[in-house]
Computed example of a mutant assay.
Amino acid sequence: MAERSLIAVVDDDESVRESLPDLLREFGFAAQAFASAEAFLASSCVGEAHCLILDMCMPGMSGRELQRELVRRWHTVPIVFITAHGDEALRPRVLEQGAVECLFKPFSDTALLGAIRAALHLK
């Protein structure tokens, strides 16, 4: 059996941390959820994740700050940002800075799967 790609979810919203990993497992991925950027950085998942679904606005270190920290540490993991607090001007900026996608909550399962497939270079 082939190893399933590990998708890390970093979001301070408990309902997202509970529902997204279940959805990702239904899609056939392995999933791990974290309540903060700091918790993700302290985990072994940093070097193991194949894709990061990352909330942009969190207490403490924001999603964009985590993105910069990962670059600083030479960790190249594809990032799909999710946010409830964005406007359309935000999306081109985060894509320009290396994110694979930026989805605005609420987003569809189809949009999420498409973003993950793009991140993992799947068809």
Rank of each mutant, 00 (worst) to 15 (best):
G63F: 12
D22K: 05
P21I: 03
L23G: 02
M61T: 15
R4M: 08
G86Q: 01
A8Y: 03
L6M: 14
G47R: 04
L23P: 00
I7L: 10
L103P: 10
R117V: 04
H85T: 12
D22I: 12
E48W: 08
S43Y: 08
I7N: 04
R93L: 13
C102W: 13
A118Y: 00
I7K: 01
A33R: 00
L70T: 02
T83P: 01
V16T: 15
E96P: 04
P92D: 09
A37M: 09
I116A: 11
F107I: 01
L70W: 07
A33L: 02
T76W: 01
T83W: 10
L66Q: 09
S36V: 06
S108N: 03
S108P: 12
P21R: 07
I7M: 13
F27V: 09
L95E: 14
G28H: 15
G98Q: 09
S19T: 14
A89K: 12
A35M: 07
L20Y: 11
F29L: 00
E18I: 08
Q97D: 15
A39P: 08
P59R: 12
V46F: 03
A30G: 01
L122S: 00
R64H: 02
E69P: 06
A8S: 14
G63A: 00
K123C: 06
D11Q: 02
A30N: 13
V77F: 14
F81K: 06
I79Q: 08
S62V: 10
R93I: 15
E38L: 10
L90Q: 04
S36M: 04
F104T: 07
A2G: 13
I53E: 07
P92C: 01
A115S: 09
Q67A: 15
I53D: 04
H121R: 08
F40Q: 00
R64Y: 06
L95A: 07
G60K: 05
D12Q: 11
L6F: 06
